[in-house]
Design a binder for these strands. Structure first.
Length: 247
DNA sequence: AATGGGTTCAACCGCACGTAC
DNA sequence: GGTACGTGCGGTTGAACCCAT
């Protein structure tokens, strides 16, 4: 006799699953995700539940395009902290690390491609430095365990930003796109080259002049839902997820 | 209208870290 | 101190969507 253990579900979440999760998170809190996954009847892993909640269902989430201010802040913070997405996300109320990471990758990739095009064009190629120094046989600092911000400071923030190994060379090279993007962003944040409106304040060490997000002070408060609300379930869902729209 | 390439974003994976036992 | 378990983080993937041709 074989009991067929239902396989853990993967892939896109259904609206029903979302509702279930929202309900149980409200009842049990944003902890014990494995437990939530079990008792909710969702055939998902705790990890998956947490991710869905944090990245999509959380009532505090903003939706829609990044504002200009947010873009600038991301650039600034990334130049300081490197790929510390969750840390950066804490400075952007309503944005998740995943969202910021995605944003960075798409937008910086564009910029990297533009740069690459420029670098390949005859007019700019001569002045474009590349990483083809003898030390190229060594792994990049990042891969050698250096934090990205250490890399930045080690390179004087903008001294190494003028060029990068292009694809043809990249086949044998190990300069990841992340590094390239980081350097682009670093140079832009420091020099204020791009993002019109991104003037000196970006480089000002006292920047950003923005208020700290609420959860900086009280990590639990904003992300916690009043359990009383859940007694009113199912109508509570509308309260919890005002911008809810299923993907 | 069809389609092919590019872009976006939700979700997964693997690893690291913290904590309870 | 060692181990198991839960959680968080960063990197990656792939499906859906968009847009130019």
């Amino acid at each position: 006799m074989v009991t067929v253990k239902e396989e853990t579900r993967k892939g896109p979440w259904t609206e029903k699953e979302d509702l279930q999760l929202v309900c149980f998170v409200g009842l049990l809190g944003e902890r014990r995700w494995d437990f939530i996954a079990k008792v909710s009847g969702l055939n998902r892993t705790g990890k998956s539940c947490r991710l869905r909640w944090v990245n999509y269902l959380h009532p505090g989430l903003k939706r829609g395009r990044m504002t200009h201010q947010e873009e600038r802040l991301i650039l600034e913070l990334h130049s300081r902290w490197g790929n510390r997405w969750s840390r950066i996300a804490r400075k952007l109320p309503g944005r998740t690390d995943n969202e910021i990471k995605n944003y960075w990758r798409t937008h910086m990739r564009k910029k990297a491609q533009e740069r690459k095009r420029n670098a390949l064009s005859p007019s700019s190629s001569s002045s474009s430095l590349t990483y083809n120094s003898p030390s190229r046989s060594e792994p990049p600092a990042e891969e050698a365990g250096l934090e990205q911000h250490e890399l930045n400071s080690a390179s004087g923030c903008c001294c190494v930003t003028t060029g990068f190994v292009v694809e043809e060379e990249g086949a044998k090279g190990w300069y990841s796109m992340d590094q390239i993007w980081n350097e682009i962003a670093t140079s832009e944040a420091v020099s204020g080259l791009s993002f019109e409106g991104c003037k000196n304040e970006v480089c000002d060490t006292s920047w950003p002049p923005m208020p700290s997000p609420m959860w900086e002070y009280s990590p639990e408060s904003l992300w916690k839902i009043d359990e009383e609300e859940f007694k009113m379930f199912p109508s509570v869902h509308d309260l919890l997820v005002p911008n809810y729209h299923h993907s």
